[in-house]
Design a protein around this nucleic acid. Structure first.
Lengths: 201, 201
DNA sequence: GGCAATCTCCTAATGCTATTAGGTAAGCTG
DNA sequence: CAGCTTACCTAATAGCATTAGGAGATTGCC
């Protein structure tokens, strides 16, 4: 063997290759040979690192989602007020999506529809991430920033549903326009109904 | 040949079999043999009716979506007021989803992520269906029911995003709870911000 | 240094699956 | 009844994920 790649880099190379190809061509149309060629390996070698093609798909966003949830507390730290936290939450999430669109595409387009997704760490992390919203709504109700009758679970459905919709469309349209377009207006319209009756912006 | 099935029924039988199997096991894990066996045919005979497995997937929801958009005008006919129309729109859509969960599952989980989806009639119909909302928001603004600064496209994003989220979760959770649970409250919270400043419910 | 264990990668099956080739028998049409 | 069409079949073919089995390099231990 002439030269060997640095230790531990092969697994990363496989992940990067698969990520790129899945996002470009879709999961089904990408073959294991495509991935291994791109990574500079034989097909069989890939199986020393992953159990198979599906395992690879399920593993790809691990790091991205872990960082997403891990960074959330840091991002919200020191921010005062439920609406300010909500705003930061949305902006930070979209920032992460914008920074790693390939990961986002895989989570949104291929993973969420996979039958085994619900068994993965990624799913648990996504749930935890969305669960944070409940705390923010509870806090808003306690402080009086949000109306006392607000049902936090319903508010979360609206918030998450809208957020996911924005991201999904952006990804399906191949990121051909700025993700943050009109975001202020959207945020205000979406969250205005959470305020007490007398305090609409 | 002992007995032959009624004329024209074979195509329907294939569609029904595929629909059931795709919804149960997913698109990838369903084989053409599964489908043809369920329909009482050989694999090859299926290719006299469809170009292939993907064509079959793309064809399945044609009828459902056509009925969805076709029935919308009839449903909204005679209803007075933008909020009343919006409410009817949501209720009727969810009613259709509840009545044909297999079609809905295929559209939501397998079709929307398919690269060729955007080229299908189903996609055009879905767009037309969502486009209706813009008219409703314009009408609401004109009549004064909705606030004059309302951006109809942003309002649509919130409405569609939330609606899709509700449906997707219900389908992923295998329809284990009533789809219409808490819907009144959700509708009110989601649309309240569309009203003029002085008129919150 | 020598040697066994381990790591990293390979070539060559294997077996499943979508799709196609080519054919047969029943009904329909003139 | 001869030819055509319809609806279906059996038997390839070709692509792909996955596995078997092994070769050469590297590492750890004496």
């Amino acid at each position: 063997m002439v030269s060997r790649p640095p230790k531990g880099s092969t697994k990363k190379r496989i992940i990067e290759s698969a990520k790129k190809l899945f996002a470009e061509q879709g999961y089904q149309k990408t073959t294991v040979m495509d991935i291994s060629r791109q990574a500079g390996l034989s097909e069989a070698a890939l199986y020393d690192y992953f159990q198979g093609k599906e395992d690879l798909l399920l593993t790809i966003p691990d790091l991205w989602v872990a960082e997403l949830i891990g960074g959330l507390e840091e991002q919200l730290f020191g921010i005062n007020g439920a609406f300010n936290k909500l705003r930061k939450y949305l902006w930070w999430y979209l920032k992460r999506v914008e920074a790693s669109p390939l990961d986002a595409k895989i989570v949104y387009l291929f993973l969420k529809t996979n039958a085994n997704f619900m068994k993965t760490d990624v799913y648990a992390n996504v749930r935890a991430f969305y669960g944070y919203l409940i705390d923010i709504f509870e806090e808003g109700k306690r402080s009086g920033e949000m109306k006392s009758e607000l049902n936090p679970y319903i508010a979360r459905d609206i918030f998450v549903g809208t957020m996911d919709h924005i991201v999904t469309r952006w990804l399906l349209k191949d990121r051909s326009y700025p993700l943050f377009e009109n975001l202020e207006e959207l945020f205000d319209l979406m969250t205005d109904a959470f305020r007490p009756l007398s305090a609409h912006s």
